[in-house]
Amino acid sequence: MQRVNMIMAESPGLITICLLGYLLSAECTVFLDHENANKILNRPKRYNSGKLEEFVQGNLERECMEEKCSFEEAREVFENTERTTEFWKQYVDGDQCESNPCLNGGSCKDDINSYECWCPFGFEGKNCELDVTCNIKNGRCEQFCKNSADNKVVCSCTEGYRLAENQKSCEPAVPFPCGRVSVSQTSKLTRAETVFPDVDYVNSTEAETILDNITQSTQSFNDFTRVVGGEDAKPGQFPWQVVLNGKVDAFCGGSIVNEKWIVTAAHCVETGVKITVVAGEHNIEETEHTEQKRNVIRIIPHHNYNAAINKYNHDIALLELDEPLVLNSYVTPICIADKEYTNIFLKFGSGYVSGWGRVFHKGRSALVLQYLRVPLVDRATCLRSTKFTIYNNMFCAGFHEGGRDSCQGDSGGPHVTEVEGTSFLTGIISWGEECAMKGKYGIYTKVSRYVNWIKEKTKLT
């Protein structure tokens, strides 16, 4: 034993070699072989497995989906700052455009905790909710729209109204504003409101030439003092309507412009014939205590009207009353817009006519005020429907199939267009061939041609 100890002390290297040989010859039971080890760690190889990531292109799944990435790591994937920024906006807080917040056709661009709407022409605001041009839906104005110097929408209202708090709607500024039905039992019968379409306001006024200088022999019209197929109006439903009495009662109609003036057809009036105007009328054979009678003290036909040349060209006249009318729910003026808007309103496509005229061709006159909704007829169809001249200051309205029309005794009465609950004068009943005849239409004086003249002559002093 002493000898062994001496050998170990003198030859430590020998001992180490012996131990190493023993270990190498022993069977290893701690580690699995290569094949079995792979069965336990069965993990798919990654895209760049075996390579240094710093030297390969980034992978979106590896960089940002398996674990949260930084902007720089995302930049490695896209290799483009702009594309990385677009991805980053949604990656950080989701897609803010998912709810489609942009209105009126706006395009949404996502941002971090926010979004941006790219608005089409005519709109602005956070969600493109603000109209900035009158060309689109009248700028959301209830009545009139004008573009300011910086191309912003400025709404306005006709006389007797003021802008509401929203700067879009119009509200009454006087007790009985024009064009409004205020009798409670008839307010439910107000005709369907007309909503502004998209309009090209630059070209809204037709490029028409008034044929002022045409000389033409007097034409022989049949029954051209021209509501057939209409309905009984309720008291106060058309408070701007008046009836004219002269040699015979209810020979023509008219509309209240203001307390002192009536507008009617020029062919209705004769110099030297006494005319009485009755406002607030409903049943011409009954006294309903809503009527107001006034005498006409002055007749002003349009300066281009000449019955000797043509009885229905420039067929418009103004009547001055001896005493002002007292405005109330049964006696209310009709609204008159400017030339541009009167023309736009007419193009809405349908209007209402009213009167006490004959209820059928050569038949009896109506006792109760009649009204009828009539569609506008395109000019080409209008011209083809008659052998008589249709001037540019006239328009056609009615039904091709016949059966409904204005008729004798309705002449001078109103053709009105309702705009968001307020009625505007767009025409004056003038003439036609018979009444409600198939293929024939009622012919009306186009008020847009005469609004400046009306307003100039009827100013209240």
Rank of each mutant, 00 (worst) to 15 (best):
R3A: 10
R3M: 06
R3K: 08
V4P: 06
A9Q: 12
E10P: 12
L23P: 01
L23G: 01
A26S: 09
E27H: 08
F31W: 11
A37V: 15
N38S: 13
N38K: 07
N38L: 07
I40D: 08
L41P: 15
R43T: 12
R43K: 13
K45L: 10
R46K: 10
N48V: 04
K51Y: 05
Q57M: 04
N59G: 04
N59H: 07
R62E: 09
E66H: 06
F71Q: 15
F71K: 06
F78S: 15
R83L: 11
Q90Y: 07
V92Q: 12
D93M: 13
G94T: 15
C97D: 02
S99Y: 10
C102G: 02
N104Q: 14
N104M: 08
D110I: 03
Y115S: 13
P120I: 06
F123H: 09
E124F: 09
N127E: 07
C128I: 03
L130I: 06
K137P: 13
N138P: 13
C141K: 00
E142W: 03
Q143G: 00
F144N: 00
C145P: 00
N147H: 09
N147K: 13
D150A: 06
K152C: 05
V153Q: 10
A164I: 04
A164S: 03
E165N: 07
N166V: 01
E171N: 06
A173L: 12
P177T: 04
C178H: 00
G179Q: 01
G179M: 00
R180D: 01
R180N: 01
S182C: 03
S182L: 03
V183N: 07
S184H: 06
Q185F: 10
Q185R: 06
A192W: 10
E193I: 09
E193V: 10
V195A: 09
P197C: 14
V199C: 15
Y201Q: 14
S204T: 09
E208L: 12
E208A: 11
T218Y: 06
F224R: 05
R226L: 06
D232T: 13
K234E: 10
Q237N: 06
V242I: 05
V243T: 08
L244Q: 01
G246R: 04
V248I: 09
V248C: 08
A250C: 08
C252H: 00
C252F: 00
I256M: 02
N258L: 01
E259Y: 03
K260A: 03
A265C: 02
E270K: 07
T271N: 11
V273E: 14
V273Q: 05
V278N: 03
V278M: 06
V278Y: 04
G280R: 02
H282R: 06
E285Y: 04
E286H: 10
T287I: 11
H289A: 05
T290W: 09
N295H: 09
V296E: 00
I297Y: 04
I299M: 08
Y305I: 02
A308D: 14
H314M: 01
L318P: 01
L319A: 06
D322W: 01
D322C: 02
E323F: 14
E323K: 14
E323W: 09
L327Q: 03
S329T: 13
P333I: 01
A337N: 01
D338W: 03
E340W: 14
E340D: 13
I344G: 14
I344H: 13
I344R: 14
Y352L: 13
V353W: 03
G355N: 10
G357W: 10
F360A: 07
K362R: 10
L369F: 05
L372M: 14
R373F: 03
P375W: 11
P375D: 08
C382V: 03
L383F: 13
S385A: 09
F395C: 02
F399K: 04
Q408T: 14
Q408V: 05
H415A: 03
E418L: 12
V419N: 07
G421E: 05
T426H: 01
G427R: 00
I428E: 00
E434Y: 07
C435S: 06
M437W: 13
Y444N: 02
T445V: 06
K446M: 14
S448T: 06
I454C: 00
K457M: 15
T458P: 01
